[in-house]
Write a protein that binds this DNA or RNA. Structure first.
Lengths: 344, 344
DNA sequence: ATGAAAGCGCTAACAC
DNA sequence: GTGTTAGCGCTTTCAT
């Protein structure tokens, strides 16, 4: 019934024998068949088919020193954020692009410093060709470890310790924030507040910087600290409202906080956008879907960033021989775009 | 500064040379050192240390035919449910246990039937020693494929097609449901409804069965269909309330739906548990944390189930030589326990 | 208890 | 173009 592979799997040798060619030729065909005459290619292909031949990965790795696997390193605080659609999207992009490159995703889940040694050993053991990591928090110890392992790595999000000159992929947080605030200004708003994200994440810092780029001498009290959660956004909005009776706009560092702000506004009977205009950041579908009014926000292509992380890594791996440290180690900053909806 | 591994990594040969022993002895020491005299063990250990030797995985796999990696196959609908804490917990358990066994987690993300062939090839390619899969939905095609690949596999959740005699790990859904309903009965409740989960998940079906075990001739109209979401629970509760004015208890197939039911009850001014007692299923911390009143529910140890999946798989892999199909392929049903809180 | 030697299955020079 | 051959780094009989 269930046609199960029974005996030992056929080797290249067997394929070659059946096709009546040498092992080398069989190998060439299996690897694309460049420089082999058509009829032979055909013969080998048939033999592969008939025997159900599948290349032995270990043997191949042993000689090529490439194993077609990439580690995705996720530290506990971020994994928790798997509930955060942000991560799901990024990992989705990574997974898809990896598949397109015929590479496997090896998940390395770091629960704490106790796991550091294991990770270092694994990375140092050459089990993977490269690694993808996320630099969400300022705790550099893990990042440093990864870099030191010597495994080509691309980070997601600009690392905090700028001394580590590692390639990363991030969206233009600062530029996006600028665009958001400029939009608010263009609407004629005079008193524009900012609900900021946690200070230990570069994305939040960059967005604050963008805010200040436009509002050079904004009163510091217009800036209210949040932590990227909906509740913190609601709280911050309440504070701002108390502090600034004439407030007419707010730029939140992410959509979740913007949604929180929106609910506070509604509770207080403040009209959006008539009285206060609101702009978010991320364009997170699951959040944006049901805010009232529809949220104007800065979109970033998260899945795309995941894919780019992989592309960057792959380029580095492929070009390993040539321009080692040339454009190979360049980072990528992706564009953001303002999505205008009803809230501003 | 960054102490990076520069040249090619040292081989066993190098270690042996430095320790003044043969490659064979060095190998023995690296693999535990059984049957090697202490002084030599010591010498080799030192050489390993000094050279920073790390075994070459591919070479080892090539000869042992074991590669210390396990695939975790996640199909798209379930991955979406990564937001569902259920999955996070189960994967956490799996990851931890795998680490304890020195095995790596290779994530295989299946987006649709288009990926089936790729998965089959990967599994067939012997890249992993075993696989862990989830049988949440009745779509057997993927499951069948996995089974057919011949890779030892353990499923999470009882598979729908009972014809596939594959080992799985699941909690005692039916027994747990029975306990929940019996508790309601012991409370003196006479009109006990059930908010069921989707019909294509065995867990939901088993819980329905448990409900009927206790309430043998319950009116079919006491059973209301939900889909495991909070909203569906709220809706179902409303329907039941309309249908049964004398309703005094409800058992929901999961906590999320119970939470939804609770909010409907509150809206309608129905007191819990005085008027209607409510019991959930899962004891999902993130849901249970903030229901009012605190939810009485059936607890299952999800992380533990993840760990058991790994243990089962490992036992199968290790005992591969001996009692192949003996107790090796047995499934595990874990106990549930009723957690009494305020709602029933 | 230790060493010598034979591969594991494959790719990549190098000959032809 | 195609075949021959030499390893990749390791484990594992088999002698000693």
């Amino acid at each position: 019934m269930t046609e199960q592979i029974t005996g030992p799997r056929p080797t290249l040798e067997a394929v070659a024998a059946r096709a009546g060619v040498s092992r080398a030729t069989a190998s060439r065909v299996v690897n694309g068949g460049a420089g082999v005459r058509a009829p032979l290619v055909e013969k080998v292909r048939r033999a592969v088919e008939e025997l159900g031949y599948v290349p032995n990965h270990a043997a191949r790795t042993l000689v090529t020193r490439r194993n077609g696997a990439v580690a995705v390193i996720i530290a506990e605080p971020e994994f928790r954020i798997f509930s955060d659609p942000f991560f799901e999207q990024q990992v989705r992009g990574i997974s898809r692009e990896l598949t397109a490159h015929d590479a496997q995703l090896v998940l390395l889940w770091v629960e704490g410093p106790g796991d550091h040694e294991r990770i270092a050993r694994y990375l140092g053991g050459g089990h993977v060709d490269g690694a993808l990591a996320f630099s969400l928090h300022s705790d550099d110890r893990l990042s440093a470890l990864i870099v030191r392992s010597g495994v080509p790595t691309v980070f997601g999000g600009r690392p905090a310790g700028s001394d580590l000159a590692v390639p990363f992929v991030d969206c233009d947080n600062r530029g996006g924030a600028r665009e958001a605030v400029r939009h608010l200004v263009s609407l004629g708003r005079k008193r524009i507040a900012h609900i900021a994200g946690p200070r230990d994440q570069t994305s939040a810092l960059d967005r604050i910087a963008g805010y200040h780029d436009v509002l050079v001498d904004a009163d510091p009290a217009l800036l209210c600290q949040g932590d990227f959660t909906r509740e913190s956004g609601a709280r911050a909005m309440a504070q701002l409202l108390d502090r600034w009776p004439d407030l007419d706009a707010v730029f939140a560092s992410n959509d979740l906080m913007a949604a929180g702000a929106l609910s506070t506004l509604r509770e207080r009977g403040v009209r959006v956008p008539e009285d206060v205009a609101v702009v978010g950041f991320d364009d997170m579908e699951s959040v944006v879907r049901d805010t009232a009014p529809a949220l104007t926000t800065v979109r970033q292509d998260i899945e795309g960033m995941g894919r780019i992380m992989v592309k960057l890594l792959m380029r580095r791996l492929d070009g390993a021989g040539e321009a080692e440290s040339a454009s190979a180690s360049a980072s990528v900053i992706t564009q953001t775009s303002l999505v205008r909806r009803a809230s501003a």
